[in-house]
């Protein structure tokens, strides 16, 4: 039998309890995260994947980071993305890498990307990971397309705010 019987209260006590509960909260701390000033802290450096063990490493799934010295241009990320968002396209790069004979690397359109991270799962060479940076807004769609050179840059993300809980309620601090 479920404990589904709620206590029946009278009208007056119901109102008094509600007023008490409401006014108690006037003393509690504000929970709001004031975003541009405060930024959330994430676990780790972003979502990564260990192809040997076949398991990901926990982390926020923000924009990607591409390690040029490891990318072989195998297109596995693009093939994976084809059924999902079609955000990844392979483009020619000017620089020469020994392991990348074809000279192609992924270019990601963040206007289409859904940040599922399955491209990271697909990459067998530790070349494509995700980072904490999620602030990608721009004024034009063209700016949302990140070339391999842009993807190689490690973004700065200085999130330091966490949810804290104490007697005066929970707050972001």
């Amino acid at each position: 039998m479920a404990s589904s019987i709620i206590k029946k209260t009278t009208t007056a006590t119901g109102f008094i309890k509600a007023i008490e509960s409401g006014s108690k909260h006037l003393l509690l701390k504000r929970f709001t995260l004031r975003f541009p000033e405060q930024k959330l802290k994430f676990v780790g450096d972003g979502y990564q994947f260990d192809p040997k063990r076949g398991v990901g490493i926990a982390g926020a799934r923000g924009r990607h980071i591409l390690f040029h010295e490891k990318c072989t241009g195998c297109q596995l990320c693009a093939i994976t993305c084809e059924g999902i968002a079609e955000a990844i396209g392979m483009v020619k790069i000017s620089e020469k890498w020994k392991q990348n004979k074809k000279g192609i690397m992924p270019q990601i359109d963040y206007g289409k990307c859904v940040f599922c991270g399955l491209c990271v799962d697909a990459c067998p060479f530790y070349a494509l990971f995700m980072t904490n940076d999620f602030e990608l807004s721009s004024f034009t769609k063209e700016h949302l397309i990140y070339t391999p050179a842009q993807l190689a840059v490690k973004p700065k993300y200085d999130g330091s705010v966490d949810i804290k809980i104490d007697k005066r309620g929970a707050w972001h601090g």
């Binding site: 709620i6 209260t9 119901g14 109102f15 509600a18």
Partner: peptide
Amino acid sequence: EDIFYNNP
């Protein structure tokens, strides 16, 4: 419960 479910 106080502010919502028990509210008359």
